[in-house]
């Protein structure tokens, strides 16, 4: 960050820090400072509130120092100026779009796919989207892939979360849905890169990595390290059957 941007960020952060420190203090003062808790007689110096109070006081103090420094070095003025000058065009810069695309990948992977879908499929979807969107070095393609992935994730969330009865007749309904999502994404990617040989090659490479890496991880964690995966469904069931057919 440049000096000006840094001071502007300092101004905003210091306000957040002071508010956060005050909240920590408020919560800490709700903890038992005196009296008796769980049959233990409390004095202030053994209270569970003591350490959070110290932490809160320091956060407020250091936040205030940062605020003073930010104001003295023009951070407040830069911030006000920035608020006046801010344009949608500037906010939707390429860097910010990339950032949002990464957040989409990580957020959907951790909060949407991992708890609901077989680990192989969840990882394959995450890898395919992340690699294909960023490896192409084409911002238009990144936007298109991100939109498709966001839409697919939304539909997945609605069907898997809101309308589970729709797919109740299927074994592993969420995995089936994720499989359709994966197939749809592959089809969309191939269609988007149809006319550009280099990009198509990269997309095919992305598919290879997206399938190979989760396979290696699933096999090594489940069968060698004996660590259960976050969610085991359709693909892991297939792998189990294969494993028992081959080695037992």
């Amino acid at each position: 960050m440049e000096e000006k941007e840094l001071r502007r960020a300092d101004f905003l952060t210091s306000l957040i820090l002071v508010a956060f420190g005050a909240w920590v203090l408020r919560e800490a003062f709700k903890m038992p400072l005196r009296g008796s808790y769980a049959g233990v007689k409390n004095v202030w110096y053994v209270s569970p509130a003591l350490f959070p109070i110290i932490v809160g006081v320091f956060i407020v103090f250091l936040g205030t120092l940062l605020l003073v420094h930010a104001i003295r070095s023009g951070g407040a003025a830069f911030f006000v100026h920035w608020l006046r000058q801010v344009r949608l065009q500037k906010v939707v810069s390429e860097g910010n779009l990339r950032f949002l695309a990464i957040l989409l990948a990580l957020g959907t992977f951790v909060y949407l796919l991992i708890p609901r879908v077989d680990f192989f499929l969840a990882s394959a979807l995450f890898l395919l989207y992340t690699i294909s969107a960023f490896y192409m070095e084409d911002i238009d393609l990144l936007k298109r892939f991100a939109k498709f992935y966001a839409l697919g994730s939304l539909l997945f969330a609605i069907i898997a979360g809101g309308l589970p009865r729709l797919l109740a007749f299927l074994p592993f309904p969420n995995d089936m849905l994720a499989l359709v999502f994966l197939g749809g994404y592959i089809g969309y990617g191939l269609a988007q890169t149809r006319t550009r040989e280099v990009l198509r090659q990269k997309f095919v490479q992305s598919i290879g990595v997206a399938l190979l890496v989760p396979f290696l991880l699933c096999v090594s964690f489940r069968f060698f390290l004996l660590v259960p995966l976050p969610r085991e469904g359709l693909i892991m069931e297939g792998l189990y059957r294969l494993y028992y057919a081959l080695f037992w």
Partner: peptide
């Protein structure tokens, strides 16, 4: 980095 993402999660 994409692979590291999966490794971080697992």
């Amino acid at each position: 980095m994409a692979i590291v993402g999966v490794l971080c999660v697992i």
